[in-house]
Design a protein around this nucleic acid. Structure first.
Lengths: 221, 221
DNA sequence: ATATCTTATAACTTAATTATGACAATATTA
DNA sequence: TAATATTGTCATAATTAAGTTATAAGATAT
């Protein structure tokens, strides 16, 4: 069943949206500010977020920016303003639709349905999957054996580069240049260490990273 | 460098896409309507087109139809509608991908890259194959009789050099210089030993390495 | 055929490369 | 700012490969 997270500091707005969601057969979850919203999305189980722009603690745009760091969940913004600035800004940070206050609950429901179907049918994430490993490049999420695995930024970068170049022998130099940048002149063992960390994070999938002695590594899946 | 032609009548959208292209290292060109788009594609130098459907003068679909008469350039459509009709119609006339507004620029960039790599920027393996031996230089993998064989770095280097110079008589001196380096003054038997190891690894394909008594070796395949 | 030269092989020693754990420096987040 | 997580460095261990030596096997020429 669809779960909608309603984020607004005004309880009146939350109640209205909640009521209409119930009529449509969606279950709901509420949050009073951006921080609460972030932790509820992180906790999982949420399918779509309806978020107000103006809120105490953490405003809507900032909250979306945070959420987009770890999730590609559909987000619809509620904005009191109609200016182009908001629209552009919103799309830039990755919202899926916006609606200006005052809005008719009917219209909001229509938008929810539209975004939902788009998320399900149209827009597909770029995903790599092989064996027990699944890498969602769009959401920046990695699953090992069905379980979600948290990787550090460098681990992500390293894994992403290797997966994108799977089956290709990658020299240590190439990896350092591409993942760390051409201006990195660090320790010889830095790459080893991060390969070690990545392998540890990947658990049973660590074997996909093959050591090519005297050369570098290759990702095989 | 990649040049992206952005076709949209809304300057706001053009600006956002332009900005993200810059972040990705793509240079951009703009057009306000279909007619302008056609002439800019005709002028050349464009690698990919991002085009809105709804535009004055000449709409996106009509413009694509025109462009397809003289060019197979990758085209991604921006559509405000989600209806199936648009999708089908779009692919029919030869677009490469479509994305519905509102869209996240991040996703657009992913699509651009996907279309780019599909258009032929993908990595092709450099492979040598003869009889029962197959050498994948890109993956750095050797197959003998369909089975994968693990070679040590020196074995790889030696094999790669011999395969690259197949059919040519290679003196011991030449081999030592090229594979070991001009500064190597080692034992006389070092080369023998590695030829032995390589032959052992190659199994039934060991006969491809022919001994030229008093001279060196030749790779025959 | 056999003396002589060249190459092949096995066993061994040395060298090089990668993996790892501990820690310090740095950046992030609450 | 304090707490936390991430990144980079270093010393050292583990692993794998390379090089050397002695000897055997095989070719070549006389």
């Amino acid at each position: 069943m669809y779960k909608v997270l309603i984020v607004d500091d005004e309880v009146g707005i939350r109640e209205v949206v909640k009521k209409y969601c119930a009529l449509e057969g969606f279950s709901t979850l509420e949050a009073e500010d951006g921080l609460e919203a972030i932790s509820k999305v992180k906790a999982g189980g949420v399918d779509i977020v309806i978020m107000d722009v103006m809120m105490p603690e953490l405003d809507g745009f900032s909250a979306v920016r945070e959420i987009r760091k770890f999730s590609s969940i559909p987000i619809i913004m509620l904005s009191a303003r109609t200016e182009t600035y908001d629209r552009i800004n919103g799309f830039e940070i990755g919202i899926d639709d916006y609606i200006t206050k005052p809005f008719s609950p009917k219209e909001l429901m229509l938008r929810i349905r539209a975004v939902m179907s788009r998320a399900g049918n149209g827009v597909k994430s770029e995903i790599f999957e092989s064996g027990k490993l699944k890498v969602d490049f769009t959401a920046r999420i990695v699953y090992v054996d069905g379980e979600r695995v948290d990787l550090s930024p460098k681990e992500y970068d390293l894994l992403f580069f290797m997966v994108k170049n799977k089956g290709i022998a990658l020299s240590r130099e190439k990896l350092l240049n591409e993942v760390w940048g051409y201006d990195f002149y660090g320790d010889d063992r830095t790459l080893d260490t991060h390969i070690k960390l990545l392998r540890k994070s990947l658990g049973v999938c660590s074997e996909y990273i093959v050591t090519l002695r005297g050369m570098g590594y290759r990702f095989e899946a």
